[in-house]
């Protein structure tokens, strides 16, 4: 049974893995838009300067240049903050990368409220929805450093566009890094309730599941790092086995994984679904973890929603 381990940086894991992949694959090129220190692509740039292009503050054109490199036979990784990579560059990602089926991997750091002090302009909460809606796009939201390492290798090995969403904050290690594209990871077994989580909230899912176990409730925890392709069989098994699903994501509830879970179960095996995430608002400056609490993702709120579902299912009074 998975437990919550010490925190480790996803960005560091990305930067180091990129060098390892680059050593094996001379065809790999990396682009950044003046944030290479923060995204950690600078590590690749120091090691392979001839294959590294820091294009400055031009995120949309970083994406079209990456597409041109990819169409010409290179595998291109392009990194910047998520708000710029998914938001600022959206239609270039759509046309130059996805429509052209260009082999570009967007690894976006600093997603969500966990950006903290930079405030609402930089805290994109819509990127999963934006990227998931693009035909041909693979979308991965790692919960920790081991999954980040596995995800970088997996998207490198897979032909076609990909979006990998990383956080600025280090996150507790919660997986063994056995990530596979298209597969949900069952981090904890259980039959009374399912908690589906992605990214930073997987650790909170495990914490609440452990608390529930103390009072005799068994909660299954599924890490859906592979948001697209989505492991529909694993979700529907969970719906049948547990009859209720709680979804946790550091993202807008309007267009994120909760909406995906609700629509998928609704069409195939309707069960009560509750979504924990950010309501239809922008974020603000503050301590990263305090922001999660303030914007509806506190442990207390997660507990309440879990009990609400258990009551709805008649599993508790």
């Amino acid at each position: 049974m998975t437990t919550v381990g010490p925190a480790e940086s996803l960005r560091d894991a990305y930067g180091k893995t990129l060098i390892e992949v680059g050593e094996q694959d001379p065809n790999l090129v990396v682009l950044d838009a003046d944030l290479s220190g923060s995204t950690r692509t600078a590590l690749f740039g120091q090691r392979f300067p001839e294959r590294f292009f820091n294009v400055g503050v031009m995120e949309p054109t970083m994406m079209s240049i990456a597409a041109g490199l990819a169409i010409s036979g290179r595998t291109a990784f392009a990194s910047t903050f998520a708000v710029f990579g998914a938001g600022q560059a959206y239609n270039v990602v759509r046309q130059s990368i996805c429509y052209n089926h260009a082999n570009v991997k967007i690894v976006a750091t600093h997603a969500g409220l966990l950006v903290g002090g930079d405030g609402g302009t930089h805290q994109i909460l819509e990127d999963i929805g934006l990227m998931r809606g693009l035909p041909g796009m693979t979308v991965i939201v790692p919960a920790d450093a081991p999954t980040t390492r596995a995800a970088i290798r997996a998207v490198h090995a897979r032909d076609g566009p990909a979006y990998v969403r990383l956080t600025r904050e280090s996150l507790p290690v919660v997986t063994d890094g056995s990530f596979q594209i298209g597969k949900a990871a069952e981090l904890r077994s259980g039959n009374d309730l399912t908690i589906v989580a992605v990214g930073a909230l997987v650790a909170r899912a495990l914490t609440v599941a452990e608390e529930l176990a103390q009072v005799g409730v068994s909660a299954r925890v599924l890490d859906f790092a592979s948001v697209k392709p989505f492991d529909e069989p694993a979700l529907l098994r969970a719906a049948r086995d547990t009859g209720a699903i709680l979804v946790l994501e550091e993202h807008s509830v309007l267009t994120g994984v909760g909406a995906l879970v609700a629509s998928t179960t609704s069409e195939n095996y309707p069960v009560p679904v509750r979504r924990v995430g950010v309501p239809d608002v922008f974020g603000e400056s503050g301590d990263p973890w305090a922001l999660l609490d303030r914007y509806g993702m506190s442990l207390e709120r997660i507990r309440e929603e879990a009990w609400e579902l258990l009551r709805a299912r008649g599993k508790v009074q």
């Binding site: 292009f53 949309p60 054109t61 994406m63 079209s64 240049i65 990456a66 597409a67 041109g68 490199l69 990819a70 169409i71 010409s72 036979g73 290179r74 291109a76 239609n91 270039v92 759509r94 046309q95 130059s96 052209n100």
Partner: peptide, 17 residues
């Protein structure tokens, strides 16, 4: 191409390649 201001960027990427 189609959406303007993108093909030129792709051309830059092809030239770099």
């Amino acid at each position: 191409t189609g959406g303007l201001g993108q093909g030129i960027g792709m051309a830059v990427g092809m030239a770099l390649a």
